[in-house]
């Protein structure tokens, strides 16, 4: 659809017509190259026999076969599943619970909200550092409770390969549940006042008002919050590195740390690329339908 270039249109106006496109095109070009070009590059590498250095001869699915033969991958996938389910579930529960509590005309709401949300401003590395200290069996909670008189108390999840993954859940929930709260609170506040007044006149108590009127209205907020938390969970890398370093052994490996260690520590570019492609596929499966519905929603 080329704009009609009439001979009487002055040059200045023609430039003006095309300016928006000139402005957007560098960004678009960057996006094409650095996002889509790189994705294609990574996808291609995953089909080659690249090792320490990229090798561009096509090898079919051999890297995927090697990837799927790596036991560590299944640990990482299992961890991601457990972690995502618990992290999303608990953060949602705490978030909605706190949002409803804060919606009860609490005078010092601003202060409390600030306290609930500040962990979100921290780097996951800081969060990991702090929880590593608190969960440290020698000097942390275990030691604290033992000194309080419970000599037999044991809380060594951080160094126990069966439970270490839950320490990541604990720290991640601490950091992100306030965020879920803020999203829900904003959602609660966006419900029309008159609807709540109508519910009061209809005789609904607070419990019924929330569960029968307000929460159903907030369905889109639920959806966005789940998507955001899921997205955080799949990308989680920093926290694992800082809290457990993926250990003990590789007990708390996640796809993101798996990919990183194969790419930068073991120099197995092909396997790393294959695992990155799997991560991308997972994110696409979650995010694309969501974005599609969101963008369609705006147009209406």
């Amino acid at each position: 659809m080329a704009p009609r270039t009439h001979s009487t249109v002055p040059l200045g106006q023609k430039i003006e017509l095309w300016l928006p496109r000139f402005v957007v095109s560098p960004l678009f070009a960057l996006s094409l190259f650095f996002v889509y070009g790189f994705i294609l590059w990574t996808v291609y590498i995953s089909f080659t026999k690249s090792g320490v250095m990229p090798n561009y001869s096509f090898e079919g699915l051999s890297q995927y076969e090697r990837l799927w033969a790596t036991p560590r991958l299944y640990v990482a996938l299992g961890n991601m599943f457990v972690f995502s389910a618990l992290f999303i579930g608990i953060s949602l529960a705490i978030g909605i619970f706190l949002a409803i509590l804060l919606d009860q005309r609490v005078r010092i709401e601003g202060v409390i909200r600030t306290i609930y949300l500040y962990p979100m401003a921290l780097s996951f590395i800081v969060t990991g550092t702090v929880w590593k200290w608190i969960l440290n069996p020698g000097l942390g909670i275990q030691n604290f409770v033992r000194k309080a008189g419970f000599e037999e108390f044991t809380f060594d999840w951080l160094v126990n390969s069966d439970y270490a993954i839950y320490t990541i859940v604990i720290a991640a929930v601490w950091q992100s549940s306030g965020y879920a709260m803020a999203l829900f609170l904003a959602g609660l506040r966006s419900v029309d006042d008159e609807i709540l007044k109508a519910a009061a006149i209809d005789g609904a108590g607070s419990f019924r008002t929330y569960f029968s009127v307000v929460l159903p209205i907030m369905r889109p907020v639920f959806l966005s919050t789940v998507i955001i938390l899921a997205h955080l969970a799949i990308k989680s890398f920093d926290l694992v590195i800082a809290l457990t370093g993926g250990g003990p052994g590789y007990a708390t490996a996640m796809p993101a740390t798996f990919m990183y260690s194969f790419a930068f520590q073991r120099s197995e570019l092909g396997v790393a690329a294959a695992s990155a492609v799997m991560m991308l596929a997972t994110v696409i499966a979650i995010v694309v339908p969501y974005l599609y519905s969101e963008l369609r929603g705006t147009k209406q």
Partner: peptide
Amino acid sequence: FIPFQVILL
């Protein structure tokens, strides 16, 4: 939204 692992290499 992409996981940045996919563009690291």
